[in-house]
């Protein structure tokens, strides 16, 4: 009976209070000593990381080159240059990688909002799901299995997010002639120029094209974008303001590239009818 369980757990807690009063140790100095030692370790580790960050930076320790722990700072933010890698801090990598599992546009909202919300609700609800008083680990098989699965999946997702392939514009621009040959737009000057901008402007950090690119954030493959025949005007409007044309799109605006270049990219996208067999 539930009420019996409630009475029993009250009794156990009362017993706990009695036991601690009878047999417990004062917080000071016993527990406090260990808390203090641990806190000193924490402060030392933080200070150590700061020192390593600074003093492994090459040159006179304030260049933009990365040391062991990465750059002191990147180049200044420039909304006009779009050659970027949208990378969050490492502890968001697991969320970041979830976005690659769910595909734009149908299911991406599961990765961006759905799954994190569900996980948060489960986390908050744990004390109400697991109401047994049992605390010994070996008698809590579900809790053991669940925690092992969570640690493994968080670890794998973080690792995958950390090692996710990034598109290097300077390398990919060399693939443009082969793209043109495969897609059959070798004669189309506008499309070739557009393909070069497409390769270096950061599009491939999120999108893929004939096997190049990072599939970041579950963005769609564009190898056969032209087959949809949406038209140059649509492509330009979309590049300028993706969310205006495609409601809820997380793609940033590329209006900073200027009309002439946007027209070339649009020509390239429309010329991409999919690889010829």
């Amino acid at each position: 009976m539930a009420s019996e369980r409630l009475i029993e757990r009250k009794r156990v807690f009362h017993q706990y209070k009695e036991d601690v009063k009878e047999r417990g140790k004062p917080f000071y100095p016993f527990a406090m000593l260990h808390d203090t030692i641990m806190s000193l370790v924490v402060v030392s580790v933080i200070t150590g990381l700061a020192i390593v960050w600074k003093y492994t930076t090459p040159g006179d320790h304030h260049t933009i080159d990365p040391g062991w722990l990465g750059r002191l700072y990147d180049a200044p933010a420039d909304p006009g240059t779009i050659n970027f890698v949208p990378r969050p801090d490492w502890y968001f990598y697991f969320l970041f990688y979830l976005l690659r599992i769910f595909k734009w546009p149908e299911t991406v909202v599961i990765g961006t909002v759905g799954l994190p919300t569900v996980l948060l609700i489960i986390l908050l609800a744990i004390p109400f799901i697991d109401v047994r008083p049992e605390r010994r680990l070996l008698r809590r098989p579900v809790a053991i299995v669940a925690s092992i699965l969570v640690v493994i999946s968080m670890g794998v997702l973080t690792y995958k997010g950390a090692t996710a392939k990034e598109a290097l514009g300077s390398e990919i621009v060399g693939h443009v002639p082969s793209w043109a040959a495969k897609e059959g737009f070798t004669g189309n000057k506008q499309a070739i120029a557009g393909a070069k901008i497409f390769a270096v402007a950061g599009c491939l950090n999120c999108h893929t094209y004939l096997g190049d690119g990072g599939t970041n954030l579950g963005a769609p493959d564009l190898s056969a974008e032209g087959a949809k025949n949406k038209g140059i005007a649509f492509q330009i409007a979309h590049l300028k303001c993706p969310a205006c044309v495609n409601s809820g799109s997380p793609m940033p605006s590329f209006a900073g590239l200027g009309d002439a270049r946007l027209k070339q990219i649009a020509a390239f996208l429309e010329a991409s009818k999919g690889p010829k067999k």
Binding site: F84, L99, A243, P252
Partner: peptide, 16 residues
């Protein structure tokens, strides 16, 4: 750059 573009995408993701 990293900060700016990570935030652009982060905010857009919230927007979904």
């Amino acid at each position: 750059q990293t900060a700016y573009w990570a935030t652009v995408v982060g905010i857009n993701l919230n927007g979904t």
